[in-house]
Design a binder for these strands. Structure first.
Lengths: 120, 120
DNA sequence: TCGATATTTCCACTATTATCGAATTATCGA
DNA sequence: TCGATAATTCGATAATAGTGGAAATATCGA
């Protein structure tokens, strides 16, 4: 991931409604959430929410599929992983000795338990 | 970290000059970088850069100390860790089965090698 | 086909953010 | 104390982003 793409992704998340929508979709998983339900939860009018969802989509953070009259949005985990990797790269690679605290994040998030090839 | 603080941090990073400055400071470590040198590297006039550094400071992502006539800026690793933890929390806690890819980030970033209490 | 539902696109308006020159503040060395 | 250097604050302007109503598009069930 390059700086422009990272800036686009960060900008997409840098809005209360969009961050809220994105977190909702992360939690929802593959099932996704229809646009209307997101709008209701977030408290946004349909047209505004649609704009927000477009921004998140262009940033590579969410995707969508049509299901009947609804359009189901889902988190794009690959896009999110790319962004996190980009943000973590300099911390860990550039200054390895300040990386330990970041590992705690992975632990706190129960990440290591899911590792196929455990650390070390 | 709450949504408003996360949005502030994300907004702070969602600008090419600010993201560039922040990454420079992450790499520079405790030594930090004087404002003027950041401006030169980023290619920004002093007043504009100063505005950017203020935004990053308010977001809790960098700090500064005066050294003679220079003001030395440094990354605030705690602030960055809080932001990353916030972004990762939903991915890992809410949907543990999609967390494995995120662990790869920690590995790719050589994080696990630095762990005092290795995963598992 | 028609009416209802779900969502997007378009458009105008408002609000926020970005930029940079000029003036100001702080520090240093002579 | 003075001139030079480093940086910030101020203020005006330019650029971008956010918002929501109205119209358009797509789908469904009758």
């Amino acid at each position: 991931m390059q700086i422009p793409a990272a800036v686009e992704a960060l900008s997409a998340l840098a809005h209360p409604s969009r961050l809220g929508a994105f977190r909702m979709l992360i939690r929802a998983g593959e099932a996704g959430v229809p646009a209307g339900e997101i709008a209701r939860e977030i408290g946004a009018v349909p047209s505004t929410l649609s704009t927000h969802l477009t921004i998140l989509t262009h940033a590579g953070l969410i995707r969508s599929r049509r299901e009947g009259r609804s359009i189901i949005y889902l988190a794009d985990y690959d896009g999110m992983r790319d962004l996190l990797a980009f943000l973590m790269a300099d911390c860990c690679a550039g200054r390895p000795e300040i990386c330990a605290p970041l590992s705690d994040i992975a632990q706190a998030a129960a990440c290591c338990a899911a590792l196929e090839t455990p650390c070390g």
